[in-house]
Design a protein around this nucleic acid. Structure first.
Lengths: 190, 190, 190, 190
DNA sequence: GATGAATGAGCCTTCATTCAT
DNA sequence: GATGAATGAAGGCTCATTCAT
């Protein structure tokens, strides 16, 4: 029975991502999502309290997945530059492998729905990375400036590059990834 | 007969920005927007073909305003770094003075509505800036890498910093602005 | 000035007939009719009190035109059969020449709008024909039965035949017209 | 889950006929029809794709009912005149017993909605009658003329007589029925 | 007279959600 | 648990008509 449950759960997750990406929040109704997931609208309410909770939990799940990806091969005994490069590569991989998740994330986080998210819970997934940057500052490897500014140069350029809505023809190749990281590093290093 | 009323036109523009920012695309109905603008829902259709066109034209108008702002005090006889710093400062000013416009822009451009925009028309507003970067590359002042990568480090960090959804407590101060520009410049310069 | 008036008046008449025929009462709006007539919706109200009056007056005008046609070459000194045949031929001609008017008439007279028509005014146009039938009965040339029954066999078959909604492929030829009259005559003659 | 409710289905059918007859296509809204049927407007869409389909299916259902009525006591071993008289009487009965259905039929078939009907499906209900007439022609009992002309004298006079919009005071009595049939027979017989 | 702007009311339809099985 | 039926509320949009020029 639990197997069956998870199949429906997942189907709803994927259907939500797909529909919201394709037609947006305004046009995505519960019944359309249910149809896309091949379940009854009533069934959706077995798994989610209401539409809002469906959308928010979909976002949180994606953030969770991304958080896990980002920390793969994370080894804080390595030099800071190498760790950040690994993180950068991990984000890259996640985005390249799950463009739909990424797109949903971007749309969601720029909408008022994002106010409903427990920010701390989500940020926790990225805590190790944050700690590394702070260490870099302490060790005078990274510029000693406002943390938001640093993260704006580490995380956002890669998000922009990966977002086809912003960079339509950018290729998510290994080479481009490395080139971009060099710019990020030049930006933040002392 | 009566003549079209610019006041109504503007009221609809402001109402659209305000409502979409506050409650998002999904919850913003034509009648709510009309009420916010103090006109009849039917009147909205005198000025706009339909809801979609209202949203798209609101976005384009904001882009236009931003494009004009960005090019203020633009003097291509100056050193490239100074020009870019001026552009950077202009974006900063626009965002600081019109946070609502900026927020609308971000939400819109990350939604499927953005597919409806004539991209070339909008990009034209930013053409002089693009030209400067290309010149910088030719003069070997700026790194010779993919243009998307460069712009990801010039334009997007500032967007991220200015976006309270991403950097809740970042202060749009002169000092922060200058610090951030230094990072951007370090990222792209040779 | 009067010439201009009549042009608009006629344009509205024709536009009404055309639109009602093509899309029916439910889908025909004042503004669509005005557009079809190349006038402003407001102008329509210069010529007609409201939508209802426009539709009714259009019907009455058609009935008037038909009434005039029916009585062409009407000579009550002729034998009754010949007079009726002439009437029959006249109806035929009217319908063949003005299929749109006829179609409007049929749709209108089968709708509740027909309750708004002053029936006596309209029937007056056909009074001479009625008189002829009554004379035929008196002279024992025509069957002495309920008048409605007689008229159902004189007037309605031709309406049915002429109506493409009922007889899609019926040809309004001279020969068919004569054949049909023979049946009508056989029906009513003693 | 609940099961579709035939009572609601029928209530919608009757409500549609009643309202369209009373106030016509232009004034009959979905919500008025739903109210008349004592269901929610939304429920109407459980049973019908849209308003158009409701109107068309209502017409087809009436035609079906009429087709069944027409063929009652149909015995093609009888003389042709007797068969046609039986058919004539059946139409008469149907119309006398279901004046509302008949009125709906007339209004509908004279409107552009009739273009949406699958004509062949509807005509199939009347196929046996058509065959009888053709047989009559072959046996030289009925005039050998265009089929449309024959049917215009068999079916349409009775429709006209039964239609209070055309014959306001005509009484649907047995006697009148027989008289009228005699005229019809005189019209078509050799 | 002629018109496009303006509008409250109402259109058809779909919404998010709950009910009954 | 799972579902299609059921619905009041609301959606986007157009309506018939009047206003202001």
């Amino acid at each position: 029975m639990r197997v069956k449950d998870e199949i429906k759960q997942d189907a709803l997750f994927e259907a939500t991502v797909k529909l919201i990406n394709e037609i947006g929040f305004a046009a995505s109704s519960v019944s359309k999502i249910a149809k896309q997931a091949s379940v009854s609208p009533a069934t959706l309410y077995v798994y989610h309290k209401n539409k809002e909770e469906l959308l928010v939990s979909t976002y949180v799940r994606i953030k969770q997945l991304m958080g896990l990806s980002v920390q793969e091969n994370f080894d804080d005994r390595q030099p800071i530059r190498d760790i950040l490069k690994q993180v950068w590569a991990n984000i890259f991989s996640f985005v390249a492998e799950h463009p739909a998740y990424f797109q949903y994330m971007e749309q969601f986080s720029n909408s008022p729905y994002s106010d409903l998210v427990n920010k701390e819970e989500v940020e926790a997934y990225f805590e190790p990375v944050i700690r590394i940057i702070l260490t870099g500052i302490e060790l005078k490897i990274i510029k000693d400036v406002n943390f938001d500014i640093l993260s704006a140069f580490i995380f956002f350029p890669i998000m922009a590059l990966a977002n086809p809505r912003h960079c339509k023809n950018f290729e998510l190749s290994q080479e481009n990834m490395e080139t971009a990281f060099n710019l990020a590093w030049d930006a933040i290093r002392r």
